[in-house]
């Protein structure tokens, strides 16, 4: 399966990265990681790219890392639909002090507008 993972440096993204890599290694998925613009994080793109490399280091996967500019939600949907991806994977949202989960606007946009299957990692 051809999987497009969108990450942006939040805790949820890092968790989604680790779990998606583990799953791809097991299932033999073809994984592309799109690093998107993200608000509310100090983690830079280069640091994220290194994070991806270290996540796949212990696996047999060869993962393509792409830097995606512009509006993250619409760009992810566009890439997935024009390049034949089977699935978009995203972090499952942020958690409030109370433990309430809220979806960020990227996840909301992708869920509503994507024509390919979307997975939110919890």
């Amino acid at each position: 399966m051809k999987v497009l993972l969108g990450i942006g440096g939040t805790d949820g993204s890092v968790d989604a990265l680790d779990r998606t890599v583990a799953r791809a290694a097991e299932a033999g998925d073809e994984l592309t990681v799109a690093i998107v613009e993200s608000e509310g994080t100090d983690v830079g793109r280069e640091e994220l790219a290194e994070r991806v490399e270290s996540a796949v280091a212990d696996t047999d996967l060869s993962v393509e890392v792409r830097h995606v500019e512009g509006e993250p939600g619409s760009r992810l949907v566009e890439i997935a639909e024009t390049e034949g991806f089977d699935e978009i994977v995203l972090g499952g949202g942020t958690t409030s002090p109370m433990g309430k989960i809220s979806l960020n606007q990227i996840a909301e946009f992708v869920l509503l507008n994507s024509h390919v299957t979307v997975t939110l990692v919890r």
Binding site: T95, S96, M98, G99, K100, I101, S102
Partner: peptide
């Protein structure tokens, strides 16, 4: 449930209650 709380299993309920 609202936005994932309260959680569904007793063990998760206990963890969640511990924090709040």
């Amino acid at each position: 449930r609202a936005q994932g709380i309260p959680p569904g299993q007793e063990s998760r309920i206990r963890t969640w209650l511990e924090s709040i």
